[in-house]
Amino acid sequence: KARLAESGPINAPDFEVLVNGEKIHPPRLSGHRIPFLEGTQFGLVHGEIVILPNSAASTSNLGIECKVRQVTIRRELFGMESWGRDVTRIRGEVHADFLPITSDRSGFITDSEEYKAFSEAMSRVMREVKSVLGQLSNKRENRITSRAVREALERIQKSLLAHPDLSPFGPIPVSNGQPAIGEGGVVTPTKGGHIESIAEKQKPVRKSGQKRRGKPKADLLTPNAVVRRVKIGSTGVICCLDHFGPEGTESFSEGNIIYINRDHPLYKAESNKRDAHILNLARLITQEICLMKNLRNSRKAFRQQSILLRDAFRD
């Protein structure tokens, strides 16, 4: 049936193919659809490309069906040989009724002007397909990265609440142990085991005419950057994961904004496994946090990083 669906014009009007009384329908593919219409001096090149989900990728029947008058002549890859695994996700069909075919109807006359114009049109189509495929892959990667950085920040926040003296983001709210409505705080025990009462500090009064300090914003290099913010102390930290090139630094900070390089070879190697990805993100974030606190004493900063990581991943 699959062979009959390819060799016959089953999509043509007023035409049907029946096998034992059962009508043959063209295969229906699910995925991201990219219809296209290109013009040449010999006629139109039109069709539809389907990007299959990863779960439906297959090595069988690779390529795009090239049809002349609704009949499949052959499948072509159109340069997808160098796409790696992504080629298994690309299916579709292209119609070009002006193409000259060989006498055995198994191929095209590739040195003809018609086929050259057809190839140029399909090159433009495949560039668009590759761009869309990259965007879809980035969305999936961003979802995974966003979940990993969220868990890493939650663990670091828990560790900083246990060690408020290691936080460079201002004082962490402290509780006097009494139940109340408001922001959560750390309970500070005394030597005798009793809760030490701490007077509430008055909020600084902003003078009239004084401008409100704006929130820091991360500078994004690409539209695929992943940005997460967590409130720690009076300000908090913004974590921005972006592409800075394989030769760029692994991580750096500006103010309370931490940038992590997603192109770094070590980051790419660790991002393949979820647990290793979270641990690597926590390592980089705590590294920058501790350097903010002790910029002149790197040994002390890394000692504090070890404490934060220990308590962040303590069950």
Rank of each mutant, 00 (worst) to 15 (best):
R296N: 11
D242I: 06
N142P: 04
N224Y: 14
G177A: 00
A282F: 03
E65F: 01
N11P: 01
K300M: 09
G21Q: 03
E270L: 10
A269F: 09
R3V: 14
N294I: 05
V205E: 15
N294W: 13
T222Y: 05
T102W: 12
K23P: 00
N224T: 15
I51Y: 03
S55M: 09
D275P: 03
T40R: 02
I260E: 03
G248L: 05
F169D: 08
I198G: 08
S197D: 10
L29G: 03
I49V: 09
R283H: 10
A5W: 00
G31L: 02
N297C: 00
N142E: 11
N280T: 08
L37P: 07
D242N: 06
S55T: 15
E6R: 05
N54Y: 08
P223M: 06
S112A: 13
R105P: 08
F42R: 05
N261V: 01
G84W: 00
I260C: 06
P171C: 03
N297Y: 00
T88W: 14
S251F: 06
V174S: 10
P168V: 04
V132Q: 11
R75Y: 07
L309V: 00
D165M: 12
I144P: 05
T102N: 15
S253M: 05
A5E: 00
R155C: 03
S106D: 12
F42W: 11
L133K: 07
G214S: 14
H32N: 07
P189A: 02
N224K: 13
L18G: 01
P173N: 06
E154Y: 12
L161N: 09
F98N: 08
G236L: 07
H264W: 06
G236N: 07
D97R: 12
P179H: 00
V68K: 15
N256R: 07
A5R: 01
K158C: 08
A282D: 01
K23I: 04
A96D: 09
T110M: 12
V94R: 00
T190P: 04
A148L: 06
L52Q: 01
V45M: 03
Q210S: 10
R283A: 05
P13K: 00
P168K: 04
G47W: 02
S251R: 04
R296K: 14
C66N: 10
T110E: 15
L221Y: 13
R140F: 08
P171R: 11
F98R: 13
T110D: 13
V45Y: 06
D14F: 06
A180G: 10
